[in-house]
Amino acid sequence: MALISMTVNGVQVSQEVDDSTLLIEFLREKLKLTGTHMGCDTTQCGCCVVHIDGVSAKSCTVLVGQAAGRSVTTIEGLAKGGELHPLQKAFREHHALQCGFCTPGQIMAGAELIATYPGELNEHVVREEMEGNLCRCTGYHNIVRAILAAGAEIRGTKITDPTLASHSVEG
C-alpha cells in the first residue's frame, strides 16, 4: 500500500492504494471516473487512453505509482468551463460514435494527436496515428472525418477534399 497523489482533471487527489493498482483501476474504482474504459488486457484496444502531463497513454498499462505526482486528464476533464472540446463536438456532428464504448479513448487519442502532431493532418496521417484505437461499430470512416474537422477548427486550416469534409456522402 502507498499513498498516491496526483492531479486528475485539475483536482488534486490522494488515496491509499495497493502498489499493483493500475491507473485505470484508480480512476474507475477509487475516483469513480467511469468514462475511461477497459476493453482488453493487452494494451491493444485503446479504450482506456488518458493524457498524462498532456501525453496520451493507455491507462490499463500504467501503474498508479508511475502516474504519481503527474497531471492526468480523462474524458470527464476534456471539456473546459462547460464548453465541449471541439473534438467532442465533432464526434457528435460527424456521427463518429455508435455504441460509445471506445469513444472516450478515441477522443482522448484524437485530441492529443491534433494538439501535438507536428505536421499536416490528413486522412493517411490520422489512420496511421490512430491505429492503436479499435472501434467495432463505425468502420472508422466517420471518426477520421471528426478528427480532421476538429483538427481544422483547432489549427485554423481547411479541409480541401469534399469527401472528407462531411460525415457521409448522401445519395
Binding site: 474507475r28 471539456a79 457528435r92 456521427h95 460509445g100 472516450p104
Partner: peptide, 23 residues
C-alpha cells in the same frame, strides 16, 4: 433527416452507463 443523436452527449463526455460502470 440526418439529425444528430440524443445519445451522444453522455457518451462523448464519459457519462455513459455501461454495465461495469455500476457499483
Amino acid at each position: 433527416q440526418p439529425l444528430r443523436r440524443k445519445e451522444d452527449e453522455r457518451l462523448i463526455t464519459g457519462r455513459g452507463q455501461f454495465t461495469d460502470d455500476f457499483s
